[in-house]
């Protein structure tokens, strides 16, 4: 049963990265769009993500619930030592979610729109930045259970070059996902070209940030290269991801919406796989060589069993409904008058 729970945890993280990521990306693209094109970007984005944005963020809740029910000591450690970036991310989530809804449901369209937009855009960048920082901090070995002073316990646990680089990388990935997703939603050739250009830019920045991540890990003595390339599976995953890049580029240039979506999803999946499998089941690596492991630090058996059943039964209800939601808003029909 433990493995059922772990599979759900991993899948929830992946789906949050893909769907929630595309959602954040919508704001990131807006951030990198010149003022005169923003209106257009916003409209296309809204049509594409409006109906599903709420559901996209549920994956984060599922992740958290699995952690605190199934792996309480891991959750507790992360909440204590990563308090600050978690809080920052939460503030980002609040600001973003409310701004998104407010700007569409405010009955009067006036200058308040500018304020909502600004909040939406900035928080769309900040939230995934901290998400990436948090993720990187779990493996950067800077969480120090013996730390005595405030700075080393609560600040340097997450503030380092590697974490920040991963944060930037996450931002690029999100922007890339959004651009790729939107391409299939556009209805004019001009829009399609516009978002294709964005997607290409995002790929380039993601690759540059990837280089930055490796550089930072080298400087800070994090054996990232070994994790990723140390075992055949990792090499395979990364090679597959890299090899699919040219196809992706080709797909982009030739407007094959389905192919590029699948490839983009595949790449993110491979990156997450390469980043996690090597130190599985240890998901948090601590300073001085300690670690927190999904197997050693699992909750009691009965809890894990109940959790697994709850997840399995829940997915019977959720998945069909979710697919139907995505499917029915894919077939474009006239919307609200």
């Amino acid at each position: 049963m433990l493995y059922v729970v772990i599979v759900f945890l991993w899948t929830a993280i992946l789906l949050y990265l893909l769907l929630g990521g595309a959602d954040f990306g919508a704001g990131i693209i807006e951030f990198f769009t010149s003022r005169k094109n923003r209106g257009r970007t916003r409209r296309t984005m809204y049509q594409a993500i409006g109906p599903v944005w709420e559901a996209n963020h549920m994956w984060l809740i599922i992740t958290i619930v699995i952690l605190f029910v199934g792996f309480p000591s891991i959750y507790a450690t992360m909440s204590v030592y990563l308090h600050i970036p978690l809080t920052a991310m939460l503030l980002g989530i609040i600001a973003r979610g409310t701004a998104f809804v407010f700007r569409h449901y405010d009955a009067v369209k006036d200058d308040m729109q500018k304020l909502y937009n600004r909040i939406f855009i900035y928080s769309s960048v900040i939230t995934p930045l901290f998400l990436g920082i948090i993720a990187a901090s779990t493996v950067s070995r800077q969480i120090d259970l013996q730390a005595q002073d405030f700075l080393s316990a609560y600040v340097f646990s997450w503030l380092n070059g590697f974490s920040v680089a991963v944060g930037l990388f996450t931002v690029c990935i999100c922007g890339f996902l959004a651009a790729v997703f939107i391409i299939g939603e556009t209805d004019s050739e001009a829009d399609r070209q516009f978002f294709t250009r964005k997607a290409k830019w995002m790929i380039i920045s993601a690759v540059l940030c990837g280089v930055l991540v490796f550089t930072a890990s080298y400087i800070e003595n994090i054996p990232l290269v070994d994790w990723v390339f140390g075992k055949p599976a990792g090499i395979l995953a990364i090679t597959a991801a890299s090899l699919s890049l040219p196809f992706l580029w080709y797909g982009l240039t030739h407007g094959k919406a389905i192919i590029i979506r699948l490839l983009a999803g595949f790449q993110v999946c491979m990156i997450l796989f390469a980043a996690t499998y090597r130190h599985f089941p240890n998901i948090v690596l601590l300073k001085h060589g300690g670690y927190l492991s999904l197997i050693e630090h699992q909750g009691q058996e009965k809890t894990i069993e109940a959790l697994a059943w709850a997840l399995l039964i829940g997915s019977i209800f959720i998945l069909p409904a979710l697919f139907y939601l995505l499917y029915s808003f894919e077939k474009k029909k006239p919307g609200e008058a």
């Binding site: 619930v65 029910v69 199934g70 309480p72 829940g314």
Partner: peptide
């Protein structure tokens, strides 16, 4: 968490 987490996961 492990004890009263059940309602949260169903929630």
């Amino acid at each position: 968490g492990p004890i009263f987490g059940m309602p949260f996961s169903l929630e």
